[in-house]
Design a protein around this nucleic acid. Structure first.
Length: 291
DNA sequence: TTCCAGGTATTAC
DNA sequence: GTAATACATGGA
């Protein structure tokens, strides 16, 4: 229902969900377009401005336009997930005993495949803050403006593959993405030309899906697993970046050197069917601010 | 100034 | 097969 206050009109919906740490979830490196404004998080999902605020009873969402059913956002937020079952499937070692406490309510989102793929192509050897800047520049340049509440800076949808496919490498570099420009361009062209069907990946098993994504230039095992975990919901995907590598080395290998082969074997055997959640816990846990 | 960032492709042993 | 190196850009 519409809610008026002064000149503002928001359409509101409340998702009743427990054990959901909205801030940790939106701020844990799986998505790059949310910003904290006052008490809430504001971003663009499916081409719409969305404001989210979390409390003990759940999540309140606000938009500036009526949106009909809220399934699209429920799916994005993954509010239906049996979180107790996820937590129960995490390892029972000493590391996760501590990580469980610190990361309680940390969730995985279900993002749009193209946005997720493109975003992580742009992520390699960049700090999270810089990834956000590059993505925002790309959206401003090539996305469509979205309707905003009064007083907010204009924001834009994430540009489609069709919109990016005709761009030159030079144009893309203008958004600050450096050597990643040809990778993004090639991916956009593959999707736009129909050579890469992102929807069909949903029906593959994890190894096959990995092979499809790593077939793209600039997409290796880490980026592929990010997309499989954050966009497609492959709970067994286990992206290993510098932070997760550090966590594995410190917490499970006593800071001793660890060969890629040892790391792979350990990560495939220790974390179980919810390895992807375990990975997100490790990432969030090892990056915690030092007290 | 120098170093490094949610990696990957290329080249060298 | 496994180990170095280059790669753009900008913030710390």
């Amino acid at each position: 229902m519409p809610v008026s206050s002064c000149q503002r009109v928001f359409y509101r919906h409340h998702f009743s969900v427990r054990d959901y740490d909205l801030s940790a979830t939106l701020n844990s490196g799986q998505t790059f377009r949310w910003t904290l404004v006052g008490e809430g998080w504001e971003g663009v999902v499916d081409g719409r401005f969305v404001r989210l605020s979390g409390d003990l009873s759940g999540i309140t969402a606000e938009t500036v336009e009526p949106v009909g059913p809220w399934d699209w956002l429920a799916d994005y937020l993954q509010v239906q997930v049996d979180y107790a079952a996820v937590v129960a499937a995490l390892p029972r070692d000493a590391v996760f005993q501590a990580a469980r406490a610190y990361c309680h309510g940390l969730r995985l989102l279900r993002q749009a495949p193209w946005e997720c793929l493109a975003s992580f192509i742009l992520s390699s050897t960049k700090q999270i803050g810089q990834i956000s800047r590059v993505i925002e520049a790309l959206c401003e340049q090539y996305g469509e403006p979205v309707r905003m509440p009064p007083g907010r800076k204009q924001r834009h949808s994430f540009p489609t593959a069709d919109r990016l496919a005709p761009c030159s490498e030079r144009e893309l570099r203008g958004c600050g993405m450096g050597f990643r420009a040809p990778y993004l361009q090639a991916a956009a062209r593959a999707v736009s030309a129909g050579q890469l069907d992102l929807e069909s990946i949903r029906r593959l098993d994890l190894p096959s899906a990995r092979r499809v994504l790593t077939g793209l230039k600039g997409v290796g095992p880490k980026i592929a697993d990010c997309v499989l975990l954050f966009a497609y919901g492959f709970d067994g995907a286990f992206p290993v970046d510098v932070w997760v590598h550090k966590a594995l080395q410190r917490y499970f290998f006593a800071d001793r050197p660890m060969t890629p082969r040892q790391r792979l074997h350990f990560s495939q055997t220790h974390f179980g069917p919810m390895a992807g959640y375990a990975q997100q816990y490790l990432f969030h846990y090892i990056r915690r601010p030092i007290k």
